[in-house]
Design a protein around this nucleic acid. Structure first.
Length: 453
RNA sequence: GUGGCUGUAGCUCAGUUGGUUAGAGCGCUGGAUUGUGGUUCCAGAGGCCGGGGGUUCGAAUCCCCUUAGCCACCCCA
């Protein structure tokens, strides 16, 4: 064989996605959109309003605080006008800029939710991508404990609406931690101390002590006293009772404990079952900017997946952009984690179509009739697909089955001849014949009933 | 960013001490006497063995580089 006899293959471009970026097929997108829709409805039911901000911000907005870590993870470049820009890496920094810019139009308290993708150029790991969705809700401009309570209520409502019953919202207050640190004269080393403390569950007590001594320069005694508090066990009331003497004499700590008590009472009044709330003095969250209440939420059936909804209170959201003091509190739903959990717990139906009903294209000469039937069904609120080819009925049903349709409408010459159609329940295999005129009503009643159960 | 493991069909994986035309299951497409899916049977399509370089008469197999994924660390505003 000579080279010249070979037909030249056209040079194909390998279809691929960037590292850390994903395509979503309908079967993953359907539960994803559903989850987002649920979150949206819950946020709205508490009066949070939707906002959006640009993907790109001036680099200086994003790097404001400017740690090396930020720099490493940030996607940044120069736009065509030579401006230094970056892609948002979370929704909190854009929110800070947003409220600083618009607070006079918005007024306080300002409650918003923001569901949007963010980008971080960090190394990928399971469940960690370079492009991912955040679902934040925050209340800006009030210090009231009512806002702290509401954050817990929203978390409870969110998880309930998604379909979870067994979960625990872990609650803590940075004021308590900071109060203790003040008593121990460790307030200047708060960040490294808390960062170490946050690893307690992961690396164990002795390692944490070691790390505190090494990175925060504490004495062993100081480290042990911090840990002793974090190790408090018992019911929420018992922990509160134990905390009181520990922070006694320190204003910040006392206030923190009082606030925790108020939050617990408020959550109870708001209807959160007691077993879903757990006072957990050990959670600190590695984040510097939290100053008050802290929330983390774990699924009882899948604790290993980590917190699926976390947040807390911060003193001054927008200090980099405005002189106005804007305290706030909020939390963020871990969309990807939740979906992974739901998948693992078998909570997701394996469906590749959003439609309820497939109208089969059976009698080749009756396309108009099928389109008419489909239109009527849609008018009754159903999601309906008409099969586009007059293939064998068996193949069309196979298609309907593979995609996860619940029902198929079958109408050949016989049925159409008597102005009827057959509705086949693809779950049970049973068929029922209805007059065309009343089929829409009957089907939508059936589907509504099936959705509820 | 550091270290370890892995890349063979759309997916999950076989593939002998290096040896002819690289296989299976699932999935996909079509068929099994003209109106009924999920089970079964038959057939078909689909692979530069992740990419590049090297060793060799000969490489999916051995070596180097690169890229992607997984795991751990770091970090997580």
């Amino acid at each position: 064989m000579t080279d010249s006899s070979k037909p030249k293959k056209p040079q194909l471009i390998q279809p691929r996605t960037l590292k850390g970026f994903r395509d979503y097929l309908p079967e993953t997108m359907i539960p994803r959109e559903q989850l987002i829709q649920t979150a949206r409805e819950v946020y709205r039911s508490f009066g949070f309003g939707p906002i959006d901000t640009p993907t790109l911000e001036y680099l200086e907005i994003l790097t404001g605080k400017g740690s090396d870590e930020t720099d490493r993870q940030l996607y940044k470049f120069q736009d065509h006008g030579g401006r230094d820009v970056g892609m948002r890496f979370d929704l909190t920094v854009p929110l800070a800029r947003f409220v600083a810019q618009h607070i006079n139009e918005l007024g306080t308290p300002f409650k918003r939710y923001h569901i949007a993708p963010v980008w971080r150029g960090e190394n990928t790991q399971r469940g960690r991508y370079r492009e991912f969705m955040q679902c934040d809700f925050d209340t800006i401009g009030t210090l009231s404990v009512a806002a702290d309570i509401e954050t817990g209520l929203v978390i409870n409502a969110l998880l309930s609406a998604i379909g979870f019953e067994r979960f625990k919202i872990h609650l803590n207050n940075r004021q308590v931690l900071n109060g203790l640190l003040q008593k121990q004269n460790l307030e200047d080393q708060a960040t490294p101390v808390l960062r170490s403390l946050d690893k307690l569950a992961k690396i164990g007590e002795d390692k944490v002590v070691e790390e505190m001594i090494a990175t925060a320069g504490t004495t062993e005694e100081q480290a042990r006293s911090v840990l002793a508090m974090a190790a408090l066990q018992g019911s929420n009331d018992e922990i509160l009772a134990q905390l009181k003497p520990i922070v006694a004499g320190n204003e910040l700590g006392e206030e923190g404990v009082a606030r925790l008590e108020a939050i617990l009472n408020g959550l109870q009044s708001g209807g959160v079952p007691e077993e879903r709330i757990k006072l957990d003095v050990s959670i600190a969250r590695g984040l510097d900017y939290y100053t008050g209440a802290i929330f983390e939420t774990f699924l009882d059936d899948l604790p290993g997946i980590g917190s699926v909804c976390s947040g807390g209170r911060y003193d001054n959201l927008a200090e980099l952009y405005t002189k106005r003091q804007l305290p706030g509190i909020g939390a963020s739903l871990g969309l990807d984690r939740l979906l992974a959990a739901m998948e693992e717990l078998g909570m997701l139906a394996n469906v590749k179509t959003p439609a309820d009903v497939l109208v089969t294209y059976f009698d080749k000469s009756a396309l108009g009739k099928y389109l008419e039937i489909a239109a009527t069904l849609r008018e009754a609120g159903l999601k309906v697909e008409v099969y586009p080819e007059a293939k064998k009925l068996g193949q069309q049903l196979k298609y309907a089955d593979a995609r996860g349709f619940g029902y198929a409408v079958i109408a050949g010459e016989d049925e159409l001849g008597r102005d009827a159609l057959q509705v086949k329940d693809l779950g049970t295999g049973e068929s029922t014949e209805y007059p065309i005129a009343s089929a829409a009503e009957a089907l939508s009643a059936i589907i509504k009933k099936a959705d509820q159960s």
